[in-house]
């Protein structure tokens, strides 16, 4: 197990380094002078020079990459050109909206998908199963931001149960903050839950056809015991893989959905930064997003090994002939 963790941590470190290099070089690729690019066409040469100084654009790229990375590790993401505050402060404040939204959507996804998928599998090829399959097929096809708009139309405008958008801030109390995130979280979760429910269903059907399920029945376990003791854990292996990937799409989806609900999250920050050409903010937010995906992948790998002893004991053996 220890070798496995060390191995995964190495991968994690390499991934982070490569990802940061990719992002850094992409921003470096901008034709011409980034400072001039940020200031637009009519900038005075002195202003550009001052900004170059401020952005730390003077110096060898390797040196600047090193400064950027070490800065991030110590919590210094640089200074936003438009807001004139440290990027770290900006990002932290926005993260206070985006992260709870993502986590809420993730919890909803799991809470909907697993029972629904299991139910469909146990009622395979019966009306309940067909219903679930049809609904999920539709759920996958619905763009989450459009679903968000429809939710606003129904629950905020017609029924007036929720406000149509905006965020009161966590200072107004936990309840008010969470309430503002309910509709966005549902909109985010529905398509992902549809996907996950289908994965859960097919994984469960797969597992129920396995020989060890027959063994369990032959031992005298009841259907329920068979399903929960032997079925669920085995079916979770593919489900966890997908769930790990879904986290990154929930983050990406959150960024889009924030626009529907006028939530002050990372999404709004980054789109404003793009229009205002605030490259430091763009760079930092993108790095943060990629970072979180890589971290989640790391934890998914660990969960995987925790569930499956075959992974824990050895690295996957390549098929040996003979």
């Amino acid at each position: 197990m220890l070798t496995f963790i060390i191995n995964r941590m190495m991968t994690l470190a390499i991934s982070l380094v490569v990802a940061s290099l990719v992002i850094f070089t992409t921003i470096e690729l901008i034709p011409g002078d980034p400072a001039a690019f940020m200031l637009g066409l009519n900038a005075e040469p002195e202003t550009v020079a001052a900004l170059r100084q401020e952005l730390g654009l003077n110096g060898h790229p390797v040196e600047r990459y090193w400064r950027w990375v070490t800065g991030m590790i110590t919590g210094d993401f640089g200074r936003s050109y438009t807001y004139q505050v440290p990027v770290a402060d900006l990002v932290m404040a926005r993260l206070g909206v985006s992260l709870p939204l993502t986590v809420m959507a993730l919890i909803l996804t799991i809470a909907i998908a697993l029972p629904v998928g299991m139910m469909a599998a146990s009622k395979r090829n019966k009306p309940a199963d067909w219903g679930v399959m049809g609904m999920t097929q539709l759920g996958i096809a619905i763009p989450n931001f459009w679903f968000a708009m429809i939710l606003v139309l129904v629950f905020a405008i017609q029924l007036q149960w929720f406000s149509a958008g905006g965020f009161p801030g966590w200072d107004e109390g936990l309840g008010a903050g969470l309430k503002a995130l309910v509709l966005p979280a549902i909109a985010l979760a529905l398509p992902q839950a549809s996907i996950l429910a289908r994965v859960m269903r097919s994984a469960m059907i797969d597992v129920l056809a396995q020989d060890y399920i027959r063994t369990a029945r032959a031992k005298g376990l009841s259907e329920r015991q068979v399903l929960l003791r032997h079925g669920l854990r085995n079916a979770l292996i593919p489900v966890v893989t997908i769930l790990g990937l879904q986290f990154s799409f929930l983050i990406a989806g959150a960024i889009i959905i924030e626009n529907v609900f006028f939530l002050p999250g990372l999404g709004r920050l980054v789109f404003q930064a793009i229009t205002q050409r605030d490259l430091i903010v763009v760079e930092s937010v993108v790095m943060l997003l990629v970072f979180s995906v890589i971290i989640v992948t790391f934890f998914v790998d660990l969960t995987y090994a925790w569930i499956d002893p075959r992974l824990r004991h050895s690295r996957l053996n390549k098929g040996v002939w003979s």
Partner: peptide
Amino acid sequence: FQEPMTALNPL
């Protein structure tokens, strides 16, 4: 059963 490789729960 016949299949000793698959008749036991791997987990």
